[in-house]
Write a protein that binds this DNA or RNA. Structure first.
Lengths: 359, 359
DNA sequence: GGCGACTACTAAACCGGTTCAAAGACGGCG
DNA sequence: CGCCGTCTTTGAACCGGTTTAGTAGTCGCC
């Protein structure tokens, strides 16, 4: 299908140049450096180009010489449609896109993780990995390509920028809050610890093998608080479901709430999981926080709108997105200083937590 | 900052070739056409490449020769962060991204509309315009570039694909539903009609100038039903607020509900607007549907979760996204057949509508 | 009238690959 | 032994521009 070209081959800069009897450099200049051209010739060039149906320098070819694509990649591990249904990811995307707009950059969404076929060939100046990078084993395509990149929430990778939050401290604050309220029987609604789609109660061994950095750190945070309170960590059930959405939280919480003695408080590793847990409590005819207290992690908008409003650990999702994008843009300039950002979190106490029943 | 290159210039295919004393074609073949090479030489090439720190053919250069970028652009008119907070847009994005993943394509988000600087240079094989294209006046950069493109919900553009829904029929069904229930005093909570950020009651003249195709069609649909019922359209106030989010709905509805006599039913052009209108009703101490009936448009997930659940016009957002992407991929093959898709809508009656008070 | 400074434009190298026709090596076959 | 087909590998053109060094031509000035 004809998309602008002429029958006898495509109209290129050279076509225009020879039609006018000028050099290609001149035509190029007419578009990119008007001041290097007499106004008269420039307008002749532009007019002829118009008549020939020349749409201006091909951005791809221009990019090849200039070396800059003006696009920023965002790598996600799961299908992108998951990202769009995860409110935390959406907030993060908003932060990234704000910077892209300000800098006139396109935002290239790359799914399938840093080793995918798309990641191998995507035309970008740099990449934000909104996922874990497998530090062990085979390197990711992104790394191999030598593209500047920033890892968000994942592990620190040599040579890459990093943006994260105080996962461990935040999780500890959440657990401490429950413990301070008097809870002693806790349960954890966990994000996936390993990318094997496994479901069940994660024992200490599996907890130890946790691959996802955020999951691991939050688990450690809970553990810190439980340990500090003199409660035994091994008595705290950690329920893992896959994938990481609201339904997973519902199912994990259902399992926890079916235990006897029943936990009086649930620590959810994300708000989506927590909201699922609230649904599970309702399913079981339990009141929140009367029968069971629930605390989330993220503070997405839905947390404040929930009934009861969700106690959670607030993290600055949009800011994380902005920082990641800005960090990536600064890459290329010297000085590894400021290549790591660890953003603070804050416990937000709302209505979903209270003292345990009978206290 | 060094990102993979050597001090003495970047490592290219030519570097590897001369290091081995073979031609560049051979090195290229080692990556792209292994079968054209003796296994022995191929492994030599790959090994040397590894030693030299060559990351494989540069995708950008490869693209230039091959002519295909393997990326699909999505143009949005407002800031992308708006798109991410619009549930309908998010569903649409999910549909598009599903196809991208299946086809191993990157999804390039382009904000600022089809004439923006980013649209002018974005490296994509084709573009989906999730926004109106200004058919009059200056052509969009996308059109000028001769890229294949598909317009969604917008006007039909010669040479472009098109995906839309039965806006007019859907809107008419919504209005008819209210009229059948006995409502005679209606009000419209409108999406922006013109891109001038104007706010107020849109008179017939402004309604006539409505630039956004979906807004215009829905307005016509309402008008169809009102006219068919023998009610006067000019008596129906159309409140316009900007931008198009929940807060706009709340403010527009507040203005409508402050009128005397008060409308007994509100037609909202989107679910977000309708949800805002429900908030406005609550603000005014009115019950829904007891004092005022509300019907939306879109059927986003939040519509079913609302209290009361929202009566609305369902449209297949994800399917629209999938269709748009697939249509774009098919472009380039002959036959304009099937270049236009108009998807059906369906009135979904829930709890937010009922008979007018005192009837 | 000669010198230097500008201005306007061009030639050629370069960006980093892909591709295709053709050349060379090699083995099989009559 | 000579001819031919097959398998490897290569040279050169090509993708569509950008850029830098340099060349005419013009002007001002002493």
């Amino acid at each position: 299908m004809e998309t602008g070209g002429r029958a006898g081959g495509r109209v290129t800069l050279a076509t225009v140049a020879s039609a006018l009897g000028v050099s290609r450099a001149t035509v190029s200049n007419a578009y990119n450096h008007p001041e290097r051209l007499s106004p008269r010739l420039r307008s002749r060039v532009l007019r002829t180009a118009g008549e020939l149906g020349y749409a201006g320098p091909d951005p791809l070819a221009a990019t090849l010489s200039r070396g800059r694509v003006n696009a920023l990649g965002l790598v996600y591990e799961d299908p992108m449609s998951f990202a769009f249904s995860d409110p935390a990811a959406v907030l993060f995307l908003q932060g990234v896109s704000e910077v892209c707009e300000r800098e006139d950059l396109a935002l290239v969404l790359i799914s399938g993780g840093p080793g995918s076929a798309v990641a191998r060939v995507a035309l970008v100046d740099g990449v934000i990995c909104y996922c874990d990078i497998p530090v062990d084993g085979k390197l990711a395509a992104i790394v191999e390509r030598g593209l500047p990149f920033v890892v968000v929430d994942g592990p620190q990778v040599p040579g890459a920028g990093h943006v994260g939050i105080e996962d461990r401290a935040g999780a500890a604050a959440a657990a401490r809050h429950l413990i301070d309220l008097g809870h002693t029987r806790l349960g954890v609604v966990a994000l996936p610890l390993v990318d094997d789609e496994w479901e069940g109660t994660a024992d200490l061994d599996r907890q130890d093998r946790a691959r996802y950095r955020a999951s691991r750190e939050r688990l450690l945070g809970y553990q810190d608080a439980v340990g500090a309170a003199g409660l035994g960590w091994s008595a705290v059930p950690v329920e893992e479901r896959s994938p990481y959405g609201r339904d997973a939280g519902r199912r994990a919480a259902a399992a926890l709430l079916a235990r006897r003695p029943r936990p009086t408080a649930l620590l959810a590793m994300s708000d989506e999981l927590a909201l699922g847990a609230m649904a599970a409590a309702a399913d079981a005819g339990l009141s929140v926080p009367g029968d069971v207290a629930i605390v989330g992690f993220d503070d997405v908008p839905a947390a404040a709108d929930a009934h009861p409003a969700l106690t959670t650990v607030r993290q600055p999702h949009r800011e994380k997105g902005r920082r990641a994008a800005e960090l990536l843009l600064r890459r290329g300039s010297p000085g590894p200083a400021g290549d790591e950002h660890r953003l603070p979190v804050e416990l937000v106490v709302r209505a979903s937590t209270g003292p345990p029943p009978g206290r």
